Amino acid sequence: MADSAISLVPVRVAELAVGKPLQRPIYDWYGNLLLASGCVIESQSQLDGLVSNGFIYDPNWDLAPAPRKAPTVPIPSRKTSPPPEVSGEDPNSGNKETIVAMDDVRWYVGETLYLQLIDNPTIRYTVRLIGFVKNKTVFVTQPAVDGKFEYVRDGQTFVVRAFSGKKAYAFVCSAVKSVHTPHPYLHLSFPKEVRCAVVRRGSRAQVRIIASVSLGQPERVGAATLTDMSIGGTSGIIKQSLGSKGDEGLIKFKVHAAGQDEYLSLKTVLRSVTPAENGEGYRHGFEFLDISMHDRLILSAFVHQTLAEGI
């Protein structure tokens, strides 16, 4: 488990290749190890997942000087001062928001951005950052749905959200111009300010997802309404008490991550059962067990996208 003070930045596609060993370990955005240094990427889909949701240790983001010795896996614990914007806060407290300038954020070409129409919040697009010209324009790939480019009118206003390392960013901008040749891309207005929140390791995304749950032997099955989720677990309401603490089973649900629907079937253990707050049913708390790298990448993408939408 990575130290919470360690700074992570998105992995770059140029550092990865199918069939070649990793030069550095790759983590999810919580700091959990996905692939250790020396492991070989076995397929293009695995590589794409790592590019979308993988992070590497970057000492340039640390406030304290990085040690001369290269970090090992797991990253050794180091005593560093907490970032100024969260100094003195309880680790379990909410995320504190600050305002930063666009060019103060260490954006990378290929960074995933989420666009949400202000006048129709149900419309959301996933795009990639191409670059920006300070105080003038931000270049992103043309929004597409099911492989088809979407028409974006000049002047349409978006809330744009992104993750970089353990920080979530959000800003408001408008479409300046769609360019269709030689390659489609979109000009966005340059934001005056960007809101930034440091996301805690234990942060839970507020969700509303219908799931199928099976627990124990003999197997008991029920439908749950999941209300929050993290990379490590979830909780939700079931009409009846489905089991006892320690019962293991499966939980199945669908999430929308990085622009597509993904179906997850995860091994889980029941950690708590209490009467629901509104008196209707029982709240069950689940911990995910033995999550595969593929499923962990999907969960990371979904959770950090949902958390970003909350700032």
Rank of each mutant, 00 (worst) to 15 (best):
P74T: 01
I118P: 02
G281T: 04
G243T: 04
E89T: 12
R128S: 13
A276F: 10
E277P: 08
T225E: 02
Q260W: 00
K96L: 15
Y57E: 03
I6A: 14
L289F: 11
P191V: 08
Q305A: 10
K167Y: 11
M293Q: 14
V255S: 05
G38R: 02
K239L: 08
D90L: 15
R208E: 09
D261M: 14
G233F: 07
L188C: 09
P218E: 09
G216F: 03
S272G: 10
A205G: 06
L186M: 15
E248H: 05
R271Q: 13
Q260C: 09
Q240L: 11
F132W: 06
W61H: 04
R208S: 12
R204S: 02
P275C: 13
D103N: 15
L63W: 01
G131A: 09
C173F: 02
V273F: 09
A197R: 14
V13I: 08
L250D: 06
P25E: 03
V145Q: 06
G54K: 05
L226W: 00
A66Q: 00
G222T: 13
V198K: 11
A224F: 15
A2T: 07
R208H: 08
H256I: 08
Y114E: 01
L47G: 02
G155C: 13
I311V: 15
R24S: 09
I251C: 08
R220G: 06
G243V: 07
N135S: 15
V176Y: 01
L117H: 04
C196Y: 02
Q116G: 04
W107C: 14
P121L: 06
S77D: 01
Q116K: 10
A5D: 04
G88F: 14
V152H: 03
F253R: 00
I210H: 10
V176I: 14
T98W: 04
S4A: 10
K20H: 02
N95H: 12
I251E: 04
L113P: 06
K254W: 02
G310A: 11
